[in-house]
């Protein structure tokens, strides 16, 4: 029985971590290419609203998820045109993107407030999904969770095992040098921004289609900002982003249980716990490496205009 309780806790932890993994891994790719997109929160919530609307209209969770990703991608495209194409300031553009995304999500979601849907279906393999202790954790998740895990593996492999990944990291390190070598700095950056937007939109879709299957304004509750912080403190490494997200999820579940148990601590303090724990752990982690070189992509946030 205790094994099943542990499993139940782990399943909720993974569920809480999934939107952060999705949004964080997308932002990681954009930042590795040298683009700082502070609009994650906006892309995420627009994705949440759009995916719920699409799912309601088509009655398909899958199309809803695709709609969420496309919504994030469209906002990211706007951001990419501004910052990569027109060399606008990335910080200002990213912050405006968040405000725009919040506004658009209210508009798109206006007609759907208070409506509930069935959550995204969970995998059910007869036999395997019922294994005691691990069945639900490994074989009973919804497609978002598997996608998030697969994305972490795929992005790790892409960045460090493929030539295109090397090109992307090089462009994030020094856009002048890579431009001089003839690498397509702006194209790679634009594509990375699009990928980041699609991932953030998918993370939003997970919230409104699976985690809490309804739409309510402001439902991302700052998860986009947490994802941004995760990327920085995870020193731009995919596995660390996933670990940080799981830690955040774990602390979230823990504080819920603590509040239910009535520890006597103020609820607000406990609600802040996941944020504090995640930041603390990742700060300690990033202290590990010292010496020369730079932890962050060296060209991060710097605007590139090709020399004449």
């Amino acid at each position: 029985m205790t094994l099943d309780i542990v499993q139940m806790v782990l399943v909720t932890v993974l569920a809480a971590a999934t939107p952060l993994i999705l949004a964080g891994i997308g932002e990681l790719v954009a930042e590795r290419a040298g683009v700082l997109n502070l609009g994650v929160e906006g892309m995420m919530i627009f994705g949440a609203a759009a995916s719920f609307a699409v799912a309601m209209q088509t009655d398909s969770t899958f199309l809803g998820a695709v709609g969420g990703a496309v919504a994030g991608l469209l906002l990211a495209a706007l951001f990419g045109i501004l910052t990569v194409g027109l060399a606008a300031n990335q910080v200002a553009s990213g912050l405006s993107l968040t405000i725009l995304g919040l506004g658009l999500s209210g508009l798109v979601g206006a007609g759907y407030v208070g409506i509930k849907r069935d959550p995204a279906p969970h995998l059910a393999i007869p036999g395997l999904s019922d294994l005691p202790g691990i069945g639900q954790l490994l074989f009973g998740q919804d497609a978002f969770v598997y996608t998030a895990v697969a994305l972490v593996a795929a992005v790790s492999w892409f960045l460090w095992r493929t030539r295109s990944g090397l090109t992307l990291r090089a462009i994030g390190d020094d856009h002048v040098a890579t431009h001089a070598l003839g690498l397509k700095v702006r194209k790679v950056r634009f594509l990375s921004v699009l990928f980041g937007g699609a991932c953030a939109g998918l993370g939003g879709a997970y919230l409104s289609l699976a985690y809490t299957p309804f739409w309510s304004p402001g439902m991302t509750a700052g998860r986009g900002w947490i994802a941004l912080a995760l990327v920085v403190f995870a020193s731009w490494r995919p596995l660390r982003v996933a670990a940080g997200a799981l830690l955040f999820g774990g602390a979230t579940v823990l504080q819920l249980h603590a509040q239910a148990a009535g520890l006597g601590l103020p609820g607000q303090l406990l609600s802040a716990l996941p944020y504090l724990a995640t930041i603390l752990a990742l700060v300690l982690l990033s202290l590990g490496r010292r010496g020369g070189g730079s932890l962050a992509p060296a060209a991060l946030g710097r605007v590139f205009t090709p020399s004449r």
């Binding site: 990291r169 090089a170 390190d173 020094d174 040098a177 890579t178 070189g293 060296a298």
Partner: peptide, 10 residues
């Protein structure tokens, strides 16, 4: 190149 076109962190 004179100003080396190298990425320092690679």
């Amino acid at each position: 190149f004179q100003h080396f076109s190298l990425c320092e962190n690679l």
